[in-house]
Each structure stands twice: as C-alpha cells, then as structure tokens.
Amino acid sequence: MMAAILSNRNLAYATAALLAVVLVAVARGGGGFPALPVLVQIHLASMVFVMALTVPMLLAAKGTPRHRLLGRIWAGLMWGNAIITLFFNAGSRQAGGVFVGDWSPIHALSIFVAVMVPVAVMRARRHDRAGHESAMRGLVIGSLLVAGFFTLPFGRMLGTWLMGH
C-alpha cells in the first residue's frame, strides 16, 4: 500500500503540484525577487529548475543517456543548493546573509542533502539500482516535497507571496 502511494509516478505528480504552487507564488510576489539576498535568488531559481527536472526523471526510463545527463545536472544543483543554504546565515544581510546568526533545524537537512547526493551518485555509478533509487526517493521526499511544503506556511516568503500579503 505505502509503495503504491510513494510510487515514482505519485512522487512526480506531487513534485509537479509543488512546482506549480511555487510558480504561482513567484508570479504573485516576484516583484520582490530583486530585493532578495543573492543567495536566496540563486536558491529559489535553481530549486525551481530542480523540481522541473525531477518530474521527467521520475516518469521516464532509467539508465538512459538522457537520464544520466539530467541526473548529473540535478545532482549538481541539489548539492550546490545544500552548500548555499549553509551560508544563509553568513555575514550581514548586505553581504548576502539571510538568517544572520540564526542556525535552525533546516541546516541539518542541508547537511543531509550535501552527504546524500554524492552517496546517490556513487550508488548509480556502482550500478546499485536499489540503493540509488532509495537515496533518490529519500532526497525527493525529504528535501523537495517536505522541505518545499514547509516554505509555504508560518509567514515564510513563498507563502506570503502565494497568499498576496
């Protein structure tokens, strides 16, 4: 039952739905985009691209040259985003810091992603299909869907943009 709920197809649909919500939020509040710290601009833009790549990667055939190419791009963007988010609290807001002096549990997710992306790549290179799929599903569920959902409530920027406040 749980495997059916968390099928690649359903994860792709959930990612597409989240991407649609994020795009609506950006369209509604995108006028504020230029005022965001550069690190947040990079993070938001590249995560939109990651979500867009995730959908066809989950739905299309695995192991093909196209899948490998998109996977390299996806892994690079995800790993880069994990590293970027570790610096969200670095320096002043004027220097690009976002949460100056504020470490939160979300930083643990950044470390998890920074570790798991290379693990997933290594498993793919070793042709450990089950291990690669498990790592990728964990990344999609945890770092895209769950973390993405939590960018919307509690007065967070995307939620504020989405609701037009």
Rank of each mutant, 00 (worst) to 15 (best):
3 A>W: 15
3 A>P: 06
5 I>D: 10
5 I>Q: 12
6 L>T: 10
6 L>F: 15
7 S>D: 08
8 N>V: 04
10 N>C: 10
13 Y>P: 06
14 A>T: 09
21 V>A: 14
23 L>M: 09
24 V>K: 05
24 V>T: 05
31 G>M: 01
34 P>L: 02
34 P>E: 00
35 A>M: 03
36 L>C: 10
37 P>S: 07
40 V>R: 07
41 Q>K: 12
43 H>L: 04
44 L>D: 07
46 S>T: 14
48 V>L: 14
51 M>G: 02
53 L>N: 04
53 L>F: 04
55 V>D: 00
56 P>V: 00
56 P>I: 08
62 K>R: 13
70 L>K: 05
71 G>M: 04
75 A>N: 03
77 L>P: 02
78 M>E: 02
79 W>Y: 08
81 N>G: 06
81 N>E: 08
81 N>F: 02
85 T>V: 06
90 A>E: 10
94 Q>M: 10
94 Q>V: 13
95 A>D: 13
96 G>P: 06
96 G>T: 09
98 V>P: 02
100 V>R: 00
100 V>C: 02
101 G>H: 00
103 W>M: 10
104 S>Y: 14
105 P>Y: 11
108 A>H: 11
109 L>K: 05
112 F>P: 07
112 F>G: 08
113 V>H: 02
116 M>N: 15
120 A>H: 09
122 M>P: 12
122 M>H: 13
123 R>D: 05
123 R>E: 08
126 R>W: 02
128 D>E: 05
130 A>T: 15
131 G>S: 08
132 H>A: 03
132 H>G: 13
135 A>E: 07
136 M>A: 13
138 G>W: 15
138 G>N: 11
150 F>W: 08
153 P>V: 03
154 F>N: 10
157 M>I: 15
158 L>V: 01
160 T>F: 01
160 T>H: 00
160 T>M: 03
165 H>C: 02
